Computed example of a mutant assay.
Amino acid sequence: MSKSYNPATVWKPFGAFSMVKIHEGGQLVHLKGQVSLDREGQIVGKGDMRVQVRQTLENIKAVLAAIGGEMADIVSLTQYTTDIERFMASGDIRKEFFSEPYPVTTTVEIVRLYRPDLQIEITAIAEIPRNRFRMPAD
């Protein structure tokens, strides 16, 4: 069970994020930054920020599922984008993956990612309840 907190002493979140997310005891996991690649390592959605955001979040969801996690277990996200305006216009896609309490989020515009056709990379920290967490076999 998690709770979010948005103190009245700072500005109110305008999107799918919280100022503070508090999780009860569980297994803390740090996810590598995910990008818009399919299982074969090919870019999905070249030139289309919305498609890339969706694929990146699907990749995060798949990584979490492999160890018993869910998107609701995410405590924190750091998002790197090459075009902040186009990324901000995809906020509705985030709401398909997250509901309250939203994870705390930092978004940074960068010059480029490791492959020029990639427009977004998102890394996450999640706390998976111990009764669902599965240690990877690999």
Rank of each mutant, 00 (worst) to 15 (best):
P103R: 06
R132W: 03
K95A: 06
Q27Y: 08
T82R: 09
F133Y: 15
M49N: 07
E96P: 08
R50W: 00
S18V: 06
D38A: 03
N131Q: 09
Q119H: 00
E100K: 11
R54A: 06
E127C: 08
M88W: 02
V29Q: 04
Q119M: 15
I67T: 09
M1D: 07
S76C: 05
E24I: 06
R132A: 06
F98W: 13
Q55D: 00
W11E: 12
Q34M: 14
M1V: 12
G26S: 01
Q52M: 06
V29M: 08
T81K: 07
G91P: 02
P13W: 11
E24F: 14
A62P: 00
I93E: 02
L118P: 01
I60H: 04
W11Y: 09
G41C: 05
R54Y: 05
V35W: 05
D92R: 01
S4I: 00
V20D: 07
E58F: 08
S18P: 10
P136T: 14
D38K: 03
R115N: 15
L37T: 14
N59H: 06
F17K: 10
G91N: 09
G25M: 07
Y5C: 09
G25Q: 08
E121P: 01
T81M: 12
V111Y: 09
N59W: 03
I110Q: 07
G25N: 13
G47H: 02
Y102D: 03
T105M: 14
E85P: 00
A124G: 05
V35R: 13
I120D: 02
R115Y: 15
G91W: 10
E121Q: 13
G33F: 04
Q34D: 04
V104Y: 11
L77E: 05
